[in-house]
């Protein structure tokens, strides 16, 4: 395993028990993240993106059915850690997150400064004063005015709350930040601002990002690498430049075609049909029912084929591998 990987995920599974059966939200996911890069995880709603983030962060609800696989952080298997060890060694020390709904992710009765400083107090053994100074630095980094440190969440606008949440994820200087649709509730101008902030942070602090989004257009600004998720699986990974230029997987091709382009004549395309239920996913290739280029081999599950640094889970690319 190359040691410049900050994160390597192998055969990660996260299934949930529900009244209708077992939901296979994350099903055999493999991917790698190199240091100081940002990988964008894209996919439709309900394809398991958020569950992937939860699985990496071990934020499990009560109805977990299966949680298995390997998650290497700096070549150390975090899955082997006990919960308390994981809390003290991993949570916010190595990995932090920016949650999906920043509106509701701040404690309404604690000053935002205290909340931002909290992880530094717990994990970096700072006293409150120094931790608040650290929080203050992070506020500057993300563009939140200094006096907001003594405000409460309800006194901030949505964009400011999101920035506070980002500041909070950075305060203990983790190696990896997972952003779960950090801008989906914001207007486009604020979205653009936040993405500029994130780009700046990546440059200044050398932190790696996993950015989970369905907003391909906006995220392309930040992306170094792309992972495409479909029905609980990662179907394609690769560097962003080549991916946006020429996606490999038929699903990725359709997904990219559905993004409106600024100076394009053609109408955005759409994908017919519904994504399969994660309760009972189809055998073989999971995209076959909606795939325009399906053929006999799609009845078997395709492995992830490697094509000069990219991976794709599709039989169409088998010939280059064999």
């Amino acid at each position: 395993m190359p040691s410049d990987n900050v994160l390597s995920v192998r055969k990660l599974k996260l299934f949930f028990r529900t009244s209708k059966g077992v939901v296979r939200a994350v099903d055999d996911v493999d991917f790698d993240l190199t240091r100081n890069r940002a990988v964008v995880v894209v996919g439709e709603s309900g394809c398991g993106k958020t569950s992937l983030a939860k699985a990496i962060l071990r934020l499990l609800p009560k109805n977990v059915h299966t949680y298995s696989g390997e998650i290497f952080l700096n070549d150390k298997d975090t899955m082997k850690l006990k919960n308390e060890e994981y809390r003290l060694q991993m949570r916010w020390v190595k990995m932090s997150m920016v949650p999906q709904a920043a509106m509701n992710s701040l404690n309404p009765v604690m000053k935002v400064g205290d909340q931002v400083a909290e992880p530094a107090i717990i994990h970096n053994n700072m006293n409150k004063e120094i931790a608040l100074q650290q929080a203050h630095k992070m506020f500057q980094q993300v563009g939140v005015p200094a006096d907001f440190i003594n405000r409460y969440a309800f006194e901030l606008s949505g964009g400011m709350r999101q920035r506070v949440a980002i500041a909070m994820s950075l305060v203990s200087l983790p190696e990896l930040v997972i952003l779960d649709e950090p801008t989906s509730a914001l207007d486009v101008l604020t979205q653009a601002n936040i993405f500029n902030v994130l780009k700046q942070i990546k440059k200044d602090l050398g932190i790696s990002f996993i950015l989970i989004t369905h907003d391909i257009a906006t995220s392309s600004e930040l992306a170094d690498d792309v992972a495409v998720m479909y029905a609980g699986q990662v179907v394609e990974t690769g560097d962003a430049h080549r991916f946006f230029d020429r996606p490999l997987h038929p699903y990725s091709i359709k997904l990219m075609a559905s993004v409106p382009k600024l100076r394009a004549r053609e109408e955005p395309d759409f994908i017919t049909g519904q994504p399969p239920s994660l309760l009972n996913p189809p055998t073989g290739c999971r995209f076959k029912a909606r795939c325009p280029s399906r053929f006999e081999r799609c009845e078997d599950e395709p492995p992830a084929f490697r094509i000069d640094g990219r991976t794709v889970k599709c039989w169409l690319h088998a010939s280059e591998d064999d």
């Binding site: 991993m90 509701n104 949440a165 909070m168």
Partner: peptide, 14 residues
């Protein structure tokens, strides 16, 4: 089940 409790858990609070 509030999001901020989940985030507190992610932050590694006891």
């Amino acid at each position: 089940m509030e999001d901020y409790v989940e985030l507190a858990r992610a932050k590694g609070l006891s």
